[in-house]
Structure formats: structure tokens, C-alpha cells
Design a protein around this nucleic acid. Structure first.
Length: 470
DNA sequence: TGAAATGTTGGGGCG
DNA sequence: ACGCCCCAACATTTC
């Protein structure tokens, strides 16, 4: 008996419920389908594709070169496989983007009509978004994080303990005439990934090492340390989780083993935010384009291509913002504190619609995730669930001084400011001429003048917000 | 998971 | 000794 194991966002062997089930049934044919056709406007961005290439390479190694790669409309491909080969069934772990739910539902119905064995599993979430335990008493989904997490998640069934890696896998002997991994064309044509390669250890083993490293060195001061981008207190597990190189259950249980304290609690609640984002996307499937709070539909956003471009390229003249945007560009990642700062800057100081930020992150982040990315952009914009009140506007100077006091992070990504004294690092335009000269900076040439005035733009944002009430 | 404005308090300098 | 002012430090309010 031969079964298809369809890998999707679960590129691992350990704690993989669909895989464990499949290998118990018989021999398996592991496949991956690159389905850009059904993704519509949610095709993977460039950084995601880059990561995927190496993650598939790693998975294929773990599967002793048995992973078969296919490209196109997954429904058509699966029909073809089932119609032309002697397979008994097909298993996968669920995905939650609206387009995938729609597609997978159709596929499952068709498979059932064909009397194929088919079952989907939960390999990506601690609690299913439709779990009745995690609804409010009135039967509607939570829109506020704290009760979602405390009254919902923490009171619901405890997450499944991770499954062991199957101790043997038997592979079926069917060639599906797919393509070579290289033919998925996931790697960039222009080589912008040299720096990125050094930054990450992609794949299941890299994910596990990252978790161990974080638990040993980052977790013990997580609650406070997570705010400082120069420190090593954040887990950096987000891309590994997104691709399913590690499951949230593995992370949750590893944190739990460290015992309850403010650091583990806080870290686990961040996994809770991930669940919350998925819950929101499930219950409000258009949040990736529509404001969750529709009163923002009339917000007077400004279209400004030059300023958007300056933000994207890390040329705003605000060093902490530019450092973050350049970290993103160079590494495919940005520290969470800085994501909030650059987000606030785009949406509030520049008054540019959060869509533009969301799209840029979607293209550049190796952890780009439809649920987390859209929920977080709506959060920072003030348009979303449990959102920061609109008037919570970050001051990029104060934030820099508070969270990168010694300038280690900022100077790393904005090296032209290396020699500016701390006192002026986050506001170089206030530095006296002799200090600028000594630091080898000519504002407007070596480093941009600020593209907006924070004080004036703050006022402007508050007025724009005020205009919604009228 | 804000920032700025405004209010309050208390210590020290000083006439 | 006392009131007054100044100002830092902290708390509260407002956007």
C-alpha cells in the first residue's frame, strides 16, 4: 500500500502528525507542490522563496533524496497523481491561509468521492482556530489578546506532546515525473543572498539548534532583554516555525520544561500571539486587505512614492528606522522592537497605508506569514484587533535612545554613523558642525537629512485620526 | 508593546 | 526659622 505524504508548511520529520500517520499505513511517496496558481495575490515573496529552496534541500536530504517536486495547480496535480498511479491515499498537515483552506477543501472532497484515504492533521498550531474552547462565552471569537490567551488558550486542553521522528520510513516506487528542485526557480537571479546565507541555518536541524541555543542563552532574561535589538534574547525561531521546520508544540514544551517564571511565561505568550493571529485570519479572512476596524476605511492616507522608497531602502534619516529597514534587507529578518518602530514610522509619521508596509515585509521577510504579518501591521497601524491605540506614536529618537543606548545595533546596520557620538546618534541633524566633521558625516550626502519632522508629523497624524471622528 | 503635557512632591538654596 | 523659588523626579492625564 502506497500513500502520498504531501509536505507543505511542515518541512520536518519530528513531530509531524501527517507523516507519522502515513508511515504507519505503508510505504510513502513524499511530495512538495509549488502552487503559485491558487495563491493569487498571496504568492510567496522573494525572501520566502529563497528560504524555501534551502529548507526543501534539507528535507530532501532527510528523506534520502525521495522528495518529489511538482509545480502548478495543486488540485490538478493531485488529480493526475491519483488517476494515474496506484496509491491508496494522501495525507497532509493543515494550512490556514484562506486560499489554501478553499483549495484544500475542494481537493479533500474530490478525494473522498474517489474513495481515497485522506486525512489532514494539525501540525502548525497549538489550538485549532475553530476550537470551541477558545471562543468567548457569547460564542463569538476573541478580538482581544489577553482574554484570548488567558481565558481561552490556557484554560483549553494542553497542547499535544511532540511526536517522535518515525524510526523508519519505507518509500514507494513511483516516479511522478516532477521537476528538479532547481526548476522550481526559487533562488534569486541577482545574487542578493550572500549576507543572508551566513545569517541562518535553514532546515530541521538548524531549527532545533536555534531552539536549544535560545533556551540556554536567551530565555533566562527574555522578558526584558527581548526589547533590546543588540542583545541575543529573542528566539529568532519565526522563520523555522513558519516553514514548519519545528512545530510550536516542540517550542512550547521545551519552554515549559524550563519551569514557570516571568521569562518562560512571556515567551510562551508570544507563541500565543502567533495563535491569536491565526485565529483572527481564520475568523476574519479578509484582514490581509481590509481594516478590521472599518472606521479606518476613511482614513486620509497619503500616497508618497519617494518617501515609501526612502523607508524601504533605509534612507529616512532616522537612524533606528534605517537600521531596521537595512537589517530586513540584508538578513530577511528584523528584531521585533524595531519592527514596531519602523511600522509606526511608516503609518503615523509618513501617513502611508499599512498595506505598503505589509507588502514590503511580505516580500523581504524570511518569516513572512499571512497571519502574523497582517495581524501585526494592523496592530501597529491601530486598525486591527486589540490594536495599539492610534495615538500611540513611537518617537524614533527616544526609542533609539531607550533600546539601543550604546548604538551597537544602529551602528552595525548604519555604518556611516559609526563615529558619531552616542549623544547625537539618533538625531545627527542636531550635532554641531565640528562633531559631524570629525565623524566624517556630511548630512544629505553621507547620510540623509530626515525626510519628515517627527514633531510636526506626529501632530499631523493626530489630526488625521481626529478627522475620523467627525 | 508611547509620548508629551501637565500636575505633584520634596529637597535645597537663598533672602 | 521661615517662606519662596527652582527643579528634578515621579505620577497622572491627554492625545
Amino acid at each position: 500500500m502506497t500513500y502520498i505524504m504531501w509536505f507543505r508548511q511542515d518541512l520536518r520529520l519530528t513531530d509531524n502528525p501527517a507523516l507519522s500517520h502515513a508511515v504507519e499505513q505503508g510505504t510513502i511517496i513524499p511530495i512538495y507542490i509549488l502552487d503559485d496558481e491558487n495563491a493569487g495575490d498571496r504568492k510567496m515573496g522573494a525572501a520566502s522563496r529563497w528560504w524555501l529552496h534551502y529548507s526543501l534541500t534539507d528535507l530532501n536530504n532527510s528523506l534520502r533524496d525521495h522528495l518529489q517536486f511538482l509545480k502548478g495547480d495543486a488540485f490538478e496535480i493531485i488529480k493526475e497523481i491519483v488517476n494515474n498511479n496506484d496509491v491508496e491515499g494522501i495525507y497532509w498537515n493543515r494550512c490556514y491561509e484562506p486560499w489554501r483552506i478553499k483549495r484544500d477543501k475542494k481537493i479533500k472532497e474530490w478525494l473522498k468521492e474517489k474513495d481515497m484515504q485522506t486525512e489532514s492533521f494539525n501540525g502548525s498550531l497549538l489550538w485549532e482556530p475553530w476550537d470551541k474552547q477558545i471562543y468567548k462565552d457569547d460564542g463569538t471569537p476573541y478580538r482581544v489578546f489577553t482574554p484570548f490567551y488567558r481565558k481561552g488558550c490556557l484554560k483549553a486542553d494542553t497542547p499535544r506532546k511532540p511526536l517522535d521522528r518515525p524510526d523508519r520510513i519505507d518509500y514507494g516506487d513511483i516516479n511522478l515525473s516532477g521537476v528538479k528542485l532547481e526548476e522550481l526557480n526559487l533562488l534569486p537571479e541577482i545574487q542578493w543572498d550572500t549576507q543572508m546565507k551566513k545569517e541562518w541555518h535553514i532546515g530541521e536541524e538548524g531549527a532545533r539548534n536555534r531552539l536549544v541555543e535560545f533556551i540556554e542563552n536567551g530565555l533566562s532574561d527574555y522578558k526584558d532583554g527581548r526589547n533590546f535589538p543588540a542583545q541575543q534574547n529573542v528566539s529568532r525561531l519565526s522563520p523555522h516555525l513558519h516553514w514548519g521546520e519545528i512545530s510550536p508544540n516542540q517550542v512550547w514544551c521545551a519552554a515549559q520544561r524550563e519551569g514557570e517564571n516571568k521569562n518562560t511565561d512571556h515567551f510562551m505568550s508570544e507563541l500565543g500571539w502567533r495563535e491569536f493571529s491565526y485565529s483572527l485570519l481564520y475568523h476574519f479572512p479578509d484582514i490581509d486587505t481590509e481594516n478590521l476596524q472599518d472606521k479606518f476605511d476613511n482614513f486620509p492616507w497619503k500616497d508618497n512614492k519617494d518617501k515609501l522608497k526612502a523607508w524601504q531602502k533605509g534612507q529616512t534619516g532616522y537612524p533606528i528606522v534605517d537600521a531596521g529597514m537595512r537589517e530586513l534587507w540584508q538578513t530577511g529578518y528584523m528584531h521585533n522592537r524595531v519592527r514596531m518602530i519602523v511600522g509606526s514610522f511608516l503609518v503615523k509619521n509618513l501617513l502611508i497605508h499599512w498595506h505598503h508596509g505589509e507588502q514590503w515585509f511580505w516580500d523581504c521577510l524570511v518569516d513572512a506569514d499571512a497571519a502574523s504579518n497582517t495581524a501585526s501591521w494592523q496592530w501597529v497601524a491601530g486598525t486591527g484587533a486589540d490594536a495599539a491605540p492610534y495615538f500611540r506614536i513611537f518617537n524614533p529618537i527616544t526609542q533609539g535612545e531607550k533600546f539601543d543606548k550604546a548604538g551597537e545595533y544602529t551602528r552595525k546596520y548604519v555604518p556611516e554613523l559609526k563615529h558619531i557620538p552616542d549623544k547625537y546618534l539618533f538625531k545627527p541633524w542636531e550635532a554641531p558642525d565640528d562633531i559631524l566633521k570629525e565623524a566624517n558625516i556630511k548630512l544629505g550626502e553621507d547620510y540623509p537629512e530626515p525626510i519628515v519632522d517627527v514633531k510636526a508629523s506626529r501632530e499631523r497624524a493626530l489630526e488625521a485620526f481626529e478627522s475620523l471622528k467627525g
